[in-house]
């Protein structure tokens, strides 16, 4: 086009190229390596796998390498029930805690959105603030409370609700608690954003047309906050599936979530190809909800939402 645009495009190219190359080198390429290693053979060596590609061998090397690609690691994932159980456990915990988060997060978001205007910034900051402190610290804080002679059991004993201190740590309950606690803002904030944007005259219009408050909530507020709920659910569900720290610190060691399995394969068993295969399958699992979300979003956009 014009000279002006041509001049600018040099700077523009640089602006684009720097982050592009960084992400390609440290995000895209690593995943290709994961994919590659998931297809190689396990070896007792350092590093603990036999390389599939030998770049120096050139094209013939690539041909030879392709013929030695193996799906044995994936076959192992399918045959050993440990992995399947792990995946199922992860999905189960992610689905359950997402549901819990919706049930707990919605009233909080609703309370925030309906708080008087001048309180809103304060309430907003109060809800978000704890999540600037370390994830690890927050989980650790729960260990303090949940351990056998911790505050929760002391309280329960003092109130004579229980006679024997129950074990809270190393249970699924603790995992759910930790997840709900850690992911709450990811659920609350998107819902709050849609509720806060909602035109309050809609509710007045509903009342004016003879709709009682509870019914207006059901017929107006809830449907309009759906985008926020969907976004919140995805923002929680996806990372929870791959969660490692919470189940590792609060959960039992009997059935591991997939993040733990991957960690164990990698650090304890030093089976990098299998760990890579676990990662690839997990990735494929997680792409699905993202694709669904994208479609919901484009549909909403198309409807002018």
């Amino acid at each position: 086009m014009s000279k002006l645009e041509a001049q600018r495009s040099w700077g523009e190219r640089l602006i684009l190229l720097v982050p592009y190359l960084w992400l390609a080198a440290f995000f895209l390429v690593p995943f290709l390596i994961v994919l590659k290693i998931s297809l190689s053979h396990t070896a007792v060596a350092q590093p603990p796998y036999t390389p599939v590609f030998d770049v120096a061998a050139g094209w013939s090397g690539v041909i030879r390498a392709l013929s030695t690609l193996s799906l044995e690691n994936y076959a192992l994932l399918g045959s050993d029930s440990l992995y399947l159980a792990s995946y199922i456990k992860s999905l189960e915990i992610a689905a359950g805690s997402t549901l819990l988060l919706l049930l707990i997060g919605f009233p909080i978001a609703y309370g925030m959105a309906r708080a008087p205007r001048r309180w809103q910034p304060v309430v907003f900051v109060l809800v978000v603030l704890p999540f600037w402190t370390s994830f690890l610290i927050r989980i650790y804080a729960w260990i303090n409370i949940l351990q056998r002679d911790g505050l929760l059991n002391q309280l329960l004993l003092a109130l004579r609700i229980v006679d024997e201190p129950p074990a809270w740590l190393s249970t699924d309950t603790a995992v759910y608690l930790g997840i709900v606690y850690s992911y709450l803002p990811f659920m609350v904030l998107p819902i709050y954003a849609t509720l806060e944007k909602m035109d309050e005259t809609l509710l007045e219009a509903a009342a004016d047309l003879g709709c009682p408050n509870w019914k207006a909530f059901w017929l107006v507020t809830l449907p309009l906050s759906r985008p926020g709920m969907v976004a919140g659910a995805l923002l929680c569900f996806i990372p929870i599936v791959g969660e490692f720290v919470i189940p590792d610190l609060l959960g039992s060691s009997q059935t591991m979530m997939i993040g733990q399995t991957l960690w164990a394969e990698f650090f304890a068993n030093r089976d990098w190809p299998v760990a890579s295969a676990v990662a690839v399958v997990l990735l494929c699992l997680l792409v699905m909800p993202i694709v669904i979300y994208e479609q919901v979003q484009t549909r909403d956009l198309a409807r002018g939402g």
Binding site: F26, V29, I33, V34, I37, I238, P239, F244, L262, S276
Partner: peptide, 18 residues
């Protein structure tokens, strides 16, 4: 956008392998 939702175990593993 992928790192926003990518489980950290996967990102960590991939980077280490690199």
């Amino acid at each position: 956008y992928a790192p926003l939702v990518m489980p950290e175990v996967i990102t960590g593993l991939a980077l280490l392998l690199l």
